[in-house]
Amino acid sequence: MPSITREEVAHLARLARIELTDDELDHLAPQLDQIIELVGQVSQVAADDIPPTSHALPLTNVMRADENVPCLTPEQALSGAPAQEEQRFRVPRILEED
């Protein structure tokens, strides 16, 4: 019994916005199954009273002074855009047709 099925991988790919091909799914699903078996070891290690560490440093709420500093110009910000129009990022339509 695999820990992750081909259908589940296809679902995750949709969530992650990657249009995987059938060949890729065939290849990926068994590999992910192996990897999940490896990483699943962590579930047996830590007792309930162990606090999680999200970060190596104990930092909280790092604030900077509320001062204006130079930032990118519109031309700089748009310089890498795949498409632009009227000094804005041009994007494809955002609603599906139906």
């Binding site: 790919a13 949709r14 990657i18 249009e19 494809p92 955002i94 599906e96």
Partner: peptide
Amino acid sequence: SAEKVTSLTREAGFGAEVKRRIIL
């Protein structure tokens, strides 16, 4: 749609290991 373009771009632009880890 934008979502479709995003999905097609990420399919074409990312390699196998990147896809593996994003999905994981």
